[in-house]
Design a protein around this nucleic acid. Structure first.
Lengths: 131, 131
DNA sequence: GCTTGAGCTTCCAGTGACTGGAATGCCTAT
DNA sequence: ATAGGCATTCCAGTCACTGGAAGCTCAAGC
């Protein structure tokens, strides 16, 4: 398979796949003409990566996950610990965003949003020194 | 005030304040010795920026918000539209993260996390082609 | 055989919003 | 005079791509 085909099958842009090779996540072979050749295992890895990335794992985490995946003697505890850690970080991020969201929603609600200049949103931003 | 003082008062790192000058968000004057001088209005702007950034507004949004803030003839509708837009994006981000979170939490729950290699998390990642 | 167009290659630069670090200069106190 | 703590500039790095330019390869149609 050429890069276009695995791009279509994995859902990853060709650019991203080249980038993944650049940083050593995958190692496709090459045709005589210089084109990358992807076999089934490489495609499989790309799909693994796409899924892991879609779950928000960093590239470094993906590297570790791939290594664990290929290590038959891994302990599932290692994987779980990594995932648990990631989950904790996602929860923290969600909590931060929700706090943001709630404040912002209050401000948006309070703003009448007409042609007059008076605006609680700007007032809040400007009153930052009172916090 | 020198940069250190406004950094302490605004909560922004001095590096960030220099960066904000670089990209034209603020324009502090200079002492003869080359040091930046910050007057009250500049400090005020920095606090405005710090607050807006903490609510997740992008630098470009901040630029617009500052301009609106300084424009006495603004319509609050402009501000509200910007904030509403931002709110929508935050909501989308939260929704995405929650979907991630839920999937990940299920996987973490399903993984026994002991010394055996069998692992539902890796299994899920590897089964990406079935989606 | 020639052309056309799609697909592939590499390499360089840009994204957002900082952040770290080096090299250097200024100010104040001892 | 020296030490330190502050300030300055400039360059490079972060993260995970993404866009674009310049050029090579391949398959199809004439």
């Amino acid at each position: 398979m050429n890069i276009g085909e695995v791009a279509a099958k994995s859902g990853l842009p060709a650019k991203t796949i080249r980038y993944y090779e650049d940083i050593g996540l995958i190692r496709p072979e090459r045709h005589d003409n210089g084109y990358r050749v992807f076999r089934q295992t490489q495609l499989h890895k790309l799909m693994f990566l796409a899924r892991a990335r879609s779950l928000g794992f960093s590239i470094d985490d993906c590297r570790i996950l791939l290594a664990l995946y290929e290590d038959d003697s891994r302990a599932s505890a290692q994987v779980k610990a990594l995932a648990q850690d990631h989950l904790t970080q996602i929860d923290a991020k969600i909590a931060g965003l929700r706090a943001m969201r709630d404040t912002l929603a209050d401000l948006v609600d309070a703003c009448h949003g007409d042609s007059r200049p008076d605006c609680p949103i700007l007032k809040d931003l400007a009153a930052a020194q009172d916090r």
